[in-house]
Amino acid sequence: MSGFNYRAIWSIYRFELHRFRRTLLTGLLVPVITTSLYFVVFGGAIGSRMTQIDGIAYAAFIVPGLIMMSMFTESIFNASFGIYMPKFTGTIYELLSAPVSAAETIIAYVGAAATKSLIVGTIIFLTAHLFVDLPVAHPLAMIGFMLLIAISFCLFGFILGIWAQSFEQLQVIPMLIVMPMTFLGGAFYSIHMLAEPWRTITLFNPIVYLISGFRWTFFGRGDVGIELSLLFVAGMLVLCLAIIGWMFRTGYRIKK
């Protein structure tokens, strides 16, 4: 047999989605509830006392940040878990002994995790419509952006899953790095609201560019230019692919 093992990709993809289906209720209910809570707290309680940000109602302003935050978390969690679990249970022996290339493995695992992440993002988007009037200036760009974000963060999660040697390590990066960076990355405010030097410091946070870019697809403007945002997404994709390429070449933490 030679050529592309598309059947393996499909098998892994289905297996992973089946795993998600087992926890379907919590998996889908959690984002809906979380979103609703954010709207009650930020949109209702605090937002009612706030003026508009860049001419956008506060409750609407936070939607892109909210979607991004959930998608970051979901992507990292699902993709890292997807590859960490076979390592943990030992079932990875089968993947390693199968005629499956590195590229096929990544497409399957990252594809499955990205699918779930996109579903969650879409649910939050739809739930948000229950609370606010939400215009979308560039619908196609919005979908494209969600797709790119899902893929890059799933790649990142995949790296994390290969790197992690314990459940604690699996949690530490999302909780201690990604979560704070997202909060400080303008998920719930415009960085223009910050005073110097914080505004300049914030510009070193790559998350700022991602959230700003996604916000642009809704409102036609963001904290930074859309070109810069796209550059950061592309940069993240390339970086993750390079790391994964190196991991597979060296067998890092997968193959002795």
Partner: peptide, 21 residues
Amino acid sequence: HTDAFERVIDTVTFSRGLFGK
């Protein structure tokens, strides 16, 4: 090494697909 929560037939079918058959 097994996927504890999978059903027997699913895991065997999965393996066949993984090997491209």
